[in-house]
Design a protein around this nucleic acid. Sequence first.
DNA 1: CACTATTGTGAGCAATTACTCAGGTCGTGC
DNA 2: GCACGACCTGAGTAATTGCTCACAATAGTG
Lengths: 215, 215
Amino acid sequence: MPSDRRGLQPRKQPRQVRARLTRQRILSGAAHVFAEYGYAAGTTNRIAERAGVSIGSLYQYYPNKDAILAELAARHLEAGTAAATRRQEEEPPADLESVIRLCVRTATENHHDDPQLLRVLMEQAPRSPELTARMADDERARVAHIEQLLRDRPEIRVPDPHLAARLVLTSIGFLVHKLASAPDPVPLPRLEEELVAMLTRYLTAAPDGTAEPPA
Amino acid sequence: MPSDRRGLQPRKQPRQVRARLTRQRILSGAAHVFAEYGYAAGTTNRIAERAGVSIGSLYQYYPNKDAILAELAARHLEAGTAAATRRQEEEPPADLESVIRLCVRTATENHHDDPQLLRVLMEQAPRSPELTARMADDERARVAHIEQLLRDRPEIRVPDPHLAARLVLTSIGFLVHKLASAPDPVPLPRLEEELVAMLTRYLTAAPDGTAEPPA
DNA sequence: CACTATTGTGAGCAATTACTCAGGTCGTGC
DNA sequence: GCACGACCTGAGTAATTGCTCACAATAGTG
């Protein structure tokens, strides 16, 4: 099992349409194979076969197996944030509950795309420094965003907005993923309601145990 | 990579003390190796070396690599539930907050044991039917326990106790694990406070958005 | 057409892996 | 002491893996 850190950049830029198509086929082949077999058992030969491309072609565009997952991850993150910002611009959330609901919706859509692949991505991220960095950056940005939002709203009663933001985002990201793809899955609409309820109550309740209704 | 499902039962029962010691050394060697290298890169030869035991001895007691992880998981689960029930008998929780706090404490202790190994365990569980089953059973029992507890307490205002129990337990299990071992880790006492706050508010608030203080 | 750059191929190599087995060492009861 | 079973050893095997490379096919250009 070689693959001794050689960077994750593609080793060759496609100059013809044919090549771009090949790259695309490799990527979607990899997505299917990783989702079905997991990362370890998702061999490069299997990916090439599934993509309908020779193993040599695969290695013309990706220096190693990690690079394929890295690009898959990059595209996923990019698509996710793009969708989130677009949606936020279309319909700016009025109250806290709407903000939370928007986050939950984003997570559920994210999950709906390809739960299996998403799991592989999250599992493998900690073992690849480049992936970890990318995902940490993304997470940091989202946390900062929510944190600012919490600071701006007077109805928020929480001692540490930063911690609260982390808690909220981590909760959403994982609970959706976990409970929606459990052996006994929770229906997404139900899950959304409960999550929104839990988090808004957490954020708007006063520290002493009493609570106030949202403004 | 053979290992074609041969069952996870030990292939030989130790009859002498020497053998029991060997088994123990293999187990703790495996715990270290899996924690350090992950499951895929935690090879059986490395485990044997770390345990100070020959590879042949390893395969006298474990039919394959999966079986080692399975026993590790079984022991972990067993220890966890034992500790939880013992603690619950020592000091029966009075109010809801105490119940939640007890759950959180159990999770943090669980985490404190060996965060890395715990991660490997949770990652690998879905790929091994036996492991999945065992962990699912454990989870079901804990959920049922909390669910009953929620039903017994009048101050709980939540539409579906079963879903609420799942949500609470999944939240605790994962959030502790994730936030305590993040690159920027949240101090455990802080995390405990916030988690307890979040979950008690969720469980005791009335569905219409107002809330009542715990009885 | 010819010539070059780009793209595609797949047999096969080097490394690694889970796992075996023939034979040795140790403990235990007589 | 002796015999027998329990226990341990580790070089070796078959299979798998990520990846290379010599070559073939195709596209672009004049």
